[in-house]
Amino acid sequence: MLGYLEKMKKEQEMEKRKDTTKKVAVGLGVGTALGAVAGVLLAPKSGKETREDIANKTKSAVEDGKKLVSEAKDELENKVKSTEQNVQEKVEEVKEEAEELIEDTKKALDEKSKNV
Rank of each mutant, 00 (worst) to 15 (best):
Y4M: 10
L5P: 01
K7C: 06
Q12E: 12
Q12W: 04
Q12V: 10
K16W: 01
K18G: 00
T20V: 03
T20H: 14
T21E: 14
T21G: 05
A25F: 06
V26G: 00
G27S: 10
L28K: 14
L28W: 02
G31S: 03
T32I: 15
A33Y: 01
A38Y: 07
A38C: 06
G39M: 08
L42S: 11
P44V: 03
K45Q: 12
K45F: 13
S46R: 04
E49W: 01
T50Q: 11
D53A: 09
K57M: 12
S60P: 00
D64T: 02
G65H: 11
K67G: 05
K67S: 12
L68W: 02
L68I: 07
L68Q: 13
A72D: 10
D74Q: 13
D74V: 08
E75S: 15
L76C: 08
K79T: 08
V80F: 05
E84K: 06
N86G: 03
K90G: 03
K90T: 13
E92K: 15
E93R: 02
E93A: 02
E96G: 00
E96S: 03
E99A: 13
E100I: 01
L101H: 07
I102K: 15
E103A: 14
K107I: 07
A108C: 03
L109T: 10
V116P: 00
